[in-house]
């Protein structure tokens, strides 16, 4: 009797939904191209088991005003464009090959510049006009303020299939209604809690947002700051999707750059910790390591800051996907 060994292949009953971000002119938007994320029918990078889904996309984060203090490495890259979100976005697309632009309207926060919804809308439109790639637009995080911004900003970009961020358990109605009305995608957010993630997904679904118009987001921790917890939540979420849980089968987004560049390891200079080596290289490595740690957890979109870190992640992706 002779038998050949066959690699065991896991069979899954479910899969991650495919979500198309952005819309071209024929589809009712103005984007030069669209990005489709998700679709995986097995765990990440196990191509031999089944459809691995779309290659994770890299979004570059753009702020609507410069940070008061940030790492010298970031100043070197973005110093010339930090006062102009549209130019900043354009640089990310043209020089760094961004798949997506992630605009964060920090300046709208009442504790910051308290920008009006009209000003925020104007900035969003300038950014949209400056790039051809699809957009993710994040509010300022102040629920009351964000609920005033969305009803003005969302119709101004109607049909563009922008990812509007974010819907939370306590504040989801306005953003979900805007996504419905203006054909955008709703990002559902949870504080590293799979139960709350599922609950927010149910709430947004009940508002009538279609499954193919939803992406989910667990607040991300950087390397050394709870990343193992983020990883295990990502993995559990992906396993639930593969087991057919309809309320957890959405593609996942993670915020990498903003988290990595606020760690001590990315900001403490040689005068403080001489044994840690070159600061610029350290910050870049911290961001790249945070991103590559989250990839096998199943993340579909990485929101990044430094172009060299993004380049490192692309190289890892090439290797893992056999590209």
């Amino acid at each position: 009797m002779s038998e050949t060994f066959a690699m065991p292949v896991e069979q899954w009953s479910g899969s991650v939904l495919e979500v198309q971000i952005g819309a071209t002119a024929e589809q009712g938007g103005t984007r030069g191209r669209t990005v489709t994320v998700g679709g995986a029918a097995t765990l990440p990078f196990l191509q031999y088991e089944g459809n691995p889904g779309a290659r994770p996309a890299i979004a570059f984060e753009v702020l609507d005003r410069p940070r008061e203090s940030w790492a010298e490495a970031l100043e070197k890259v973005y110093g010339d464009v930090k006062n102009d979100a549209a130019a900043w976005a354009q640089k990310c697309e043209q020089e760094f090959g961004a798949d997506l632009i992630c605009l964060r309207l920090e300046g709208a926060n009442p504790d910051e510049l308290d920008r009006s919804p009209t000003e925020c809308t104007a900035i969003a439109k300038q950014v949209a006009a400056a790039v051809t790639v699809p957009l993710i637009i994040w509010g300022c995080g102040n629920a009351e303020k964000d609920n005033n911004i969305w009803p003005e900003l969302s119709p101004a970009l109607a049909g563009e299939r922008v990812v509007l961020a974010s819907a939370t358990e306590d504040n989801y109605r306005t953003i979900a209604a805007c996504c419905l009305a203006d054909k955008h995608i709703c990002l559902t957010e949870a504080p590293l809690d799979i139960n709350i993630q599922k609950q927010v997904n149910i709430l947004v679904s009940e508002m009538g947002v279609k499954p193919q118009d939803m992406i989910q987001y667990q607040t991300t921790g950087a390397l050394g700051y709870g990343i193992e917890y983020a990883y295990s939540i990502y993995e559990r979420s992906r396993l639930a999707a593969l087991d057919g849980d309809a309320m957890l089968r959405f593609p996942m987004l993670s915020v990498v750059g903003a988290e990595a560049w606020k760690t001590k390891e990315a900001t403490a200079g040689p005068e403080e910790v001489p044994e840690w080596g070159d600061l610029e290289r350290r910050g870049i490595l911290w961001e790249a390591a945070t991103a590559t740690t989250l990839l096998p957890g199943g993340t579909d979109i990485l929101v990044m800051w430094h172009p060299t870190a993004a380049q490192m992640v692309r190289a890892v992706l090439d290797e893992l996907t056999g590209a």
Partner: peptide
């Protein structure tokens, strides 16, 4: 066998 959410009955039936 199922991830908890407040509306877990509805979530199961949606799946």
């Amino acid at each position: 066998h199922q991830v908890y959410s407040a509306d877990y009955l509805k979530a199961y039936r949606a799946s």
